[in-house]
Amino acid sequence: MPQTTVRFEDLHVGDDVPSASRVVTRQDVKRYADASGDQNPLHQDEHFARAVGFPGIIAHGMFTMGHLATSLTDWLGAPSRLKRLAVQFRAPVFMGETIVAEGRVRALDPEARTAVVDVWVRVERDGTTEYPIRKSEALVAFAES
């Protein structure tokens, strides 16, 4: 568990969620396939991935979403605070790349003690920033303090 977790009272619109980086390895993706049950060969078989038009195997979108969700629950301190997460997958993630999960508080509701957080995952590729997850959002809720 993280040492400190965010409190609703400390949040302001525009605050950043702590950035979380992770290098994606083939072993991680294989482990994700086994843990999730998603054995699509696109994520494990180079030949298959090339045959369907990718330069190599790509991570599951849900692998990247899982990393994003971990960054949020680490920030929040408790999975019960994460109420909703809705993402759009917009770019592939290749093996050896570093995915960076980030977010920013868009809106606060002091009565409901909820926050809407814009979230995304980026990767630097050939000198440009790509967004495997973009234009996505989380709803987080804080029980009475």
Partner: peptide
């Protein structure tokens, strides 16, 4: 056991069941 594997896969260091473990249920 499957949750433990999933935690490792999504980089969860704590003992929680990761929220996106829901994906494993969808794959049922």
């Amino acid at each position: 056991q499957r949750v433990a594997l999933f935690r490792e896969a999504v980089g969860e260091a704590g003992q929680i069941v990761p929220p996106t473990f829901a994906t494993a249920a969808e794959f049922a």
